[in-house]
Design a protein around this nucleic acid. Structure first.
Length: 889
RNA sequence: GGACAGUUAGCUCAGCUGGUGGAGCAUCGCCCUUACAAGGCGGGGGUCACAAGUUCAAGUCUUGUACUGUCCACCA
């Protein structure tokens, strides 16, 4: 590929496909655990196997890939494990929907056939998300691809379950849990989404048993009345204190209920009188336990009223609500109904209203495990941005035990068996042959499967072969950083911390970087129903992967959401194109040469010294930014350097060198040009792997050095840091810009060559101007340049001042002379404003006394410069005004 | 009810340790200058949400207010 000319337009599609194939076949990203370099590992947040790449994944994966590729450049031994999650409920739902289209339910198939069907589905569609990860250019190690239901990972799940059970940290019990009657399964607390919804507050009269008096309770759920087993008031509520200990009659059903007192009750809310339904409300459950109340379940797992509800048996809970309100109204006990907005729990998967439900479930005693995970932050694991630490603490501080059993089919089946003969519960990694207690073999495995997040919580070590003592684990655990969205800090991050510490004795990652959410241009969440999704796959097709990646990186400022719209991606495609064209220019001028050894610190030529100086700066900026997860800064630094310095200035400045007959001069320029391009390609490669790799391969002599994905981060070149020369270059740039501005503002065509007269402040400046005369003349488009320490400028001239040097462009009759006066006045006004600001400080005694010497000196210098410039401009303006007046007369 | 963000140019956002307000896009003017019109050059545009405080000096630190957003929480 070497030394070919690049085509005139960058065609991402072919290029990307070619490099992807190459990297995969070459196993470029498969590390050797015995290889050199410090270990650096990131595990992918495993996307759902049913998923399609959305923009959130794209952001997440891009940022990880940037870190991963950068770490490789820094000589680390880098592992990125890819994989997918079996996503229990989500996947089951997807397959069930497919079945429904055939008019079947999973029950028609039966458990085994259904699970086969899910595996089949995975075979067919599970690679889609993986292909998309690849399309995004992720440099994962495909040889280590994992799936949470793999044999190895399943073994890890069983090992963890059994050990926790034996340690008493997993237990089985009757509890009130969140029940989704559509998914037909328990949900963990954080799988319930609370949403405000408009409801009603029914005020209902409960008559006292032994008196004519009554209590009015307020409820949002009258259908649970049959399950009431007490009425509760606040112990210090004077309105009700006399009723405590007496009995009330349950409306319609007529049962007797005790009146109890508990400070849990909010006296301000409703009537201050609460009906207690222990089986159908989390708080009432708590009250029931505390006061030893009866537990009466009246709604079943399908949302239907049970026999215990008496006359309402067989109704749905919605029908029951209507009916029971009618009945109470008929009896004259409905005091009033008021509208109420309150939070109602919904299933995070299917959005059905969640019903608190009492049932037998398995739990992990996270209350016991949480303190260790809490203590690890920030000592062992740092969280970026820090603002999330509090949230992390708060969640662990208020955690309840984690309900891990799910009444679905797709997932890790709980490794627990009950002996049908003697009732013994056996928890074992392997399927037991017979009951260890009675020796019979009538064993029945628990029907439930584990919460998907159970296997996810093991991901950092299960993917590395645990529980075996593998080389990978030794080398790469704990991982270096976890990069993920803050939305799964509880689901996933905290639980990985818990499991990692418990089973490996070490936190699973040293850093956690929580990135933002990607929103649409209006700041709304992207969702299919709103129709505002930006499909990353489509963006890659339209604009190329590198443009998408650069956009996401450039917007990834810490702790802030990203508002993305398609035209931003389109905008950054221009940047990709700019790089491409800069490379084309470079190659044009490098035809036939091969890189030769040369000491860049010895190169003469101010523009070379300057660009090499800037290159050192940008190298520091990029590495500093990436090491602190400041992705946007890294992208910005590259952008500014490539476009603002390299393309806008340097490429223009070397053109005269390239046309020169001086072979040495041309060679030097070629050398520096190639060097700078190569290093900027390396810097950009983590963000834009494809276009940079493609250009790299086309550079002269590319067959002699490794491909870009294997090239290290450029070494610092301290001898090239030359701030004084860089400053001198800035002076020349300002001279050139001044000429351009004069032309533009006086309507002189930019291509029109003009005469330039310069009056430098001293010999050094004069020398500087003279030695760069050719460049200035070309870039500023001059026909003549005259430098004179004692310049006698013609009065009819446009003028400016840069670094004290007077810049004069004599005007001929063709231009609008009056324009120059307004131009100068505008400049003077701006100058005056600045001067006022600076002098306000300098005239303030407090400032002079208290500000640091350094600052005072700087302000004084600025003031002098401004004053000098002002005087020079004023003098020029005066002479010009005279000339103008003469001309008029 | 608690916690956490955000409020800077028409739009989207940078601005880390306090020292004369930046970028991209958009806009206006001039240019086909042999890498790039997906481009070049130049210009215009901001009492940095509001108020008080600390300081010689505040977009930057403190407190409060307003609005926006997110998360958590059992108000029946």
């Amino acid at each position: 590929m070497a030394e070919e000319m690049l085509p005139s337009g960058y065609e991402p599609k072919d290029v990307e496909a070619r490099w992807r194939r190459h990297w995969e076949e070459d196993k470029t990203f498969t590390p050797d655990p015995d290889g050199p370099g410090e270990g650096y590992a990131i595990v992918i947040p495993p996307p759902n196997v049913t998923g399609a790449l959305h923009i959130g994944h794209a952001l997440n994966l891009t940022l990880i890939d940037v870190l991963i590729r950068y770490a490789r450049q820094k000589g680390k031994n880098v592992l990125w494990v890819p994989g997918t999650d079996h996503a229990g409920i989500a996947t089951q739902n997807v397959v069930e929907r497919a079945l429904a289209r055939e008019g079947k339910s999973r029950h028609d198939l039966g458990r085994e056939a259904f699970i086969d069907r899910v595996w089949q589905w995975r075979e067919e569609y599970g690679h889609r998300i993986l292909d998309q990860i690849s399309a995004l250019g992720c440099s994962v190690d495909w040889t280590r691809l994992r799936f949470t239901m793999d044999e190895g990972l399943s073994r890890a799940v069983r090992r963890v379950f059994v050990q926790l059970y034996n340690e008493g940290l997993i237990y089985k019990g009757d509890y009130i849990i969140n029940w989704c009657s559509r998914c037909h399964t328990a949900l963990a607390d954080d799988e319930v989404e609370h949403e405000d919804s408009a409801g009603h507050l029914w005020h209902i009269r409960y008559h006292l048993k032994d008196s004519q008096e009554s209590l009015v309770v307020a409820t949002t759920r009258p259908e649970t009345i049959p399950g009431d087993t007490a009425v509760c008031v606040h112990p210090e509520d004077e309105r009700y204190s006399r009723f405590i200990g007496s009995k009330v009659i349950l409306p319609v059903l007529g049962r007797e209920l005790p009146v109890i007192a508990d400070s849990y009750v909010d006296r301000e809310f409703g009537t201050g009188c609460l009906k207690v339904t222990p089986c159908h409300d989390h708080n009432d459950w708590m009250l029931g336990k505390r006061h030893n109340l009866e537990f009466l379940q009246v709604i079943d797992e399908n949302g239907m009223m049970k026999a215990e509800s008496g006359p309402y048996v067989g109704l749905s809970k919605e029908e029951c609500r209507k009916k029971i309100v009618e009945d109470i109204e008929k009896a004259g006990d409905l005091v009033k109904v008021e509208p109420l907005t309150h939070a109602v729990g919904h299933c995070y998967r299917c959005h059905t209203v969640v019903e608190p439900h009492v049932s037998t479930q398995w739990f992990v005693a996270t209350t016991k495990l949480a303190p260790q995970a809490r203590a690890a932050v920030p000592a062992l694991t740092k969280i970026f941005p820090e603002s999330w630490i509090k949230t992390y603490y708060h969640w662990l501080d208020t955690i309840r035990d984690w309900c891990i059993s799910r009444q679905i089919w797709w997932g890790h089946r709980i490794p627990a068996w009950t002996c049908q003969d003697c009732g013994k519960l056996i928890v074992s990694e392997e399927t037991p042959e017979k009951c260890p207690a009675c020796g019979q073999n009538h064993l029945l495995q628990d029907e439930d499967v584990l919460d998907t997040w159970f296997s996810s919580s093991l991901w950092p070590f299960s993917t590395m072969g645990w529980p075996d003592k593998t080389k990978d684990l030794k080398r790469w655990y704990p991982t270096s950083v976890l990069v993920t969205g803050f939305d799964i800090i509880f689901f996933w991050v905290a639980r990985m911390m818990i499991m990692g510490q418990h089973f490996l004795g070490e936190v699973p990652f040293k850093d956690v970087y929580l990135h933002a959410l990607v929103r649409d241009a209006e700041g709304r969440k992207m969702s299919k129903s709103t129709g505002n999704v930006i499909d990353p796959v489509l963006m890659i097709e339209k604009y190329g992967c590198d443009a998408l990646r650069f956009t996401l990186t450039a917007f990834a400022a810490m702790g802030r959401d990203i508002r993305l719209s398609e035209d931003r991606i389109e905008g950054y495609r221009h940047f990709v194109n700019k790089l491409w064209n800069a490379a084309r220019f470079t190659l044009m001028n490098l035809a036939g040469i091969s890189p030769r050894a040369c000491d860049p610190a010895k190169v003469t030529g101010l523009h070379h010294i300057w660009i090499l100086h800037r290159l050192e700066e940008v190298k520091d900026e990029v590495s500093g930014a990436l090491e602190n997860y400041r992705f946007n800064d890294a992208a910005q630094a590259c952008y500014k350097f490539l476009w603002g310095a390299f393309c806008d200035w340097y490429l223009e400045l070397v053109k005269p060198d390239m046309q020169s007959n001086d072979a040495q001069r041309k060679e030097d320029a070629q050398y520096v040009l190639l060097l700078v391009l190569r290093e900027i390609l390396v810097l950009l490669h983590p963000i834009m792997p494809f276009v940079t790799a493609e250009i790299w391969a086309a550079l002269p002599g590319s067959d002699k050095y490794p491909e870009l994905a294997r090239v290290g981060y450029p070494e610092a070149r301290p001898q090239c840091k030359r701030p004084d020369e860089a400053r001198a270059m800035e002076f020349l740039q300002e001279v050139i810009v001044s000429v351009r501005t004069i032309k533009a503002e006086l309507n002189i065509s930019p291509g029109k060559k003009v005469r330039l007269l310069l009056q430098p402040v001293d010999e050094a400046q004069k020398e500087l101007l003279l030695s760069n005369q050719e460049v200035i003349m070309q870039v500023a488009r001059l026909e003549e340049m005259h430098v004179d320490l004692a310049l006698q400028a013609p009065r009819a001239s446009a003028s400016a001042v840069a670094f004290g040097c007077q810049i004069v462009v004599p005007l001929r009759g063709t231009v609008d002379l009056a324009g120059e006066l307004t131009r100068l006045d505008k400049q003077l006004a701006k100058l005056e404003k600045n001067l006022l600001n600076v002098n306000r400080h300098l005239q303030d005694e407090n400032f002079l006394a208290r500000a640091s010497e350094e600052v005072v000196a700087r302000e004084k210098a600025t003031s002098c410069d401004l004053l000098d410039k002002k005087e020079k401009l004023l003098a020029m303006r005066a002479r010009f005004a005279e000339a103008l007046a003469e001309e008029k007369s």
